[in-house]
Design a protein around this nucleic acid. Structure first.
Lengths: 329, 329
DNA sequence: CGTGCGGCGGAATACGTTTTCTGAGATCAC
DNA sequence: GTGATCTCAGAAAACGTATTCCGCCGCACG
């Protein structure tokens, strides 16, 4: 175990009394060998503590068993769960993952693409900060886009269903009997932001008391929005927010004004970011984007692509998470 | 550019009219070649868009130009900045980084160690969730511990100076004239937690109005702690907290009780976690752990180790970040 | 008893580099 | 003009594995 001289497949073959080609076949479950021979080789490998040299394998098989994970997000709040999910299924498939944080810099992106190409990775997963689509990357190996879909419909993307998330929350508010709903969104320049606001508005119809308010992704904006809103619509009975951060600000301000949540006003967030959704008073009803599932699916799709199959793009439906900000404690 | 047939060093050599060995030397700045020859080869490589095949290189040079990054932290709040810093200097050194998230599972850790060993990585960076030391990993290649130091003093570790961070904050509170200070810490089972509380207490001396309070890393605990504290010591004029989360809870509760921060009570956090420190009302004075610097230093240390040099362990001193929770707005 | 066939394992080659060793030519001292 | 010294570049041997043939053996069949 601790006798640390590196053991090659040659050594395994010698101990098992077979040729090195045979040893290779035995260890990889390829070729046609008697079961007994396979076993003998495996035992020899076991005994010697053989770990295959990935370099040799990569060179001769043409497969590096390595994939690149490119993110523009510096491993932020959204890309991390995606990466964890992807890494989970990839490493179960014996793939190693090279991390590439481009920081939204195209020079760095080029650098990483060269590095990955030089390493002959079997494929690439691309993810990022937002669910807005991005330009495709031009390489001739398998690529899967996760969370941040590709603009090109020919690419394989695993996205989240942003509109559906907003609808789920709107339905929930209607279900619990709210009829005077307001929508407090993030910045209008985010496609996801307007998409969600639009979907919610469409579903709420006349139950929406005012046009969606656009601002920023912050608690401060949530607090400001409450003031704006109550001035025009003092009888609002629910506020759907574009993010958990905004929702938390909304809750704080409502409490300060003596309105009780959810009795007077129900509040919903978006994202199920624990540090916001659970710390809020009261904890937030929100939707969970299932980003780990997005990552997992993307990982599987990439494995499929590498194996020569043709996975389809997919859209993951978020799930409703009900907490005390909409249903009485 | 787009004529995508893979180009090998052989092709470069042919175009430059030299042997493949010569081409290799020219591209790697090794051996002795006429400058003109080097140039000729480089131009040929340029023209053909040659990118070196890392597999061949790894096999024949013994260097994979790849390092493993092992974290127990699922890429959490602490490990991420560390990884970004490390990745920054490593990728500048032409190293690729394999990500390995062990999720605190020793089975997964073994799996990753096998994978890294199989890939013949040049070195490993180990990081994690807390600044508490951890057992070393037993491999015979260069390893540097970042943020989470190794228990063994023979290993190279880059750590944060936890005690010093607490002292800096305590000094700051004394400097602004506070003389009745309380300390609200995290869980006592965290070494870092007790270490910081101890260091602050020692420096504050008689200016500490009560023994440190231990609880958990949450806003809720911060709010509870305020109630406990004011019952016994209604005249407290500063509360130092074990984390920004706790401090935010403290601020919220103080405000609810009609105490103004910082006029009545100054509050300090710890970690400079933006989403807490900046969102708090008022924004928190805290210490920044400089985790990216920790990562960068660790990366450089690893490069040194790989190059055969002998870098020393280091401790990074946190910096004070002054905001409105201690100095009047 | 010869022919063909199927199951099994070995030999050889390929993968794309780096690196060491060797030798050809040029330069220099005498 | 001869031998020694240098400068440069090529030939060839690694590195560790996968894979493609090829041939051997034993068996069934005619």
């Amino acid at each position: 175990m601790a006798g640390e001289t590196i053991v090659r497949i040659t050594d395994v073959a010698a101990l098992a009394g077979v040729s090195i080609g045979t040893a290779s076949k035995a260890l990889n479950d390829t070729g046609q060998l008697r079961e007994e021979t396979r076993l003998r080789v495996r035992e020899a490998a076991q005994k010697l503590g053989f770990v295959m040299d990935a370099r040799g394998r990569a060179l001769s098989s043409g497969r590096s068993y390595t994939v690149g994970m490119i993110t523009t997000d510096s491993f932020g709040r959204f890309s991390i769960p995606v990466m964890l999910g992807a890494e989970d299924v990839l490493s179960a498939g014996q793939m190693a993952v090279l991390m590439c944080d481009t920081r939204d810099d195209s020079v760095r992106e080029q650098h990483y693409l060269r590095s990955l190409s030089s390493r002959r990775v079997d494929g690439i997963i691309v993810t990022g900060r937002s669910s807005d689509p991005r330009p495709r990357i031009e390489v001739d190996i398998p690529v899967v886009y996760a969370f941040t879909p590709s603009l090109s419909p020919d690419d394989v993307s695993v996205a989240v269903d942003d509109a559906r998330g907003a609808e789920i929350l709107a339905e929930h508010l209607l279900t619990i009997g709210r009829r005077r709903v307001a929508y407090v969104s993030g910045p209008s320049r985010h496609a996801a932001s307007t998409l969600r606001a639009g979907a919610a508005a469409a579903l709420l119809g006349p139950n929406l008391v005012a046009p969606p308010l656009f601002g920023e992704w912050s608690e401060r904006w949530g607090r400001q929005a409450v003031d704006l809103l109550l001035r025009q619509n003092p009888d609002v009975d629910a506020i759907a927010c574009g993010s958990d951060q905004v929702a938390r600000g909304v809750c704080d301000r409502l409490r300060e004004l003596g309105k009780s949540v959810p009795q007077d006003v129900a509040v919903t967030g978006y994202d199920d970011w624990n540090v916001m959704a659970l710390a809020s008073r009261p904890p937030l009803t929100t939707v969970n984007l299932r980003l780990e599932d997005v990552g997992r699916l993307a990982g599987r799709a990439l494995l499929d692509l590498i194996a020569g199959r043709e996975p389809a793009s997919a859209v993951i439906e978020p799930t409703l998470v009900i907490r005390e900000s909409t249903v009485g404690a």
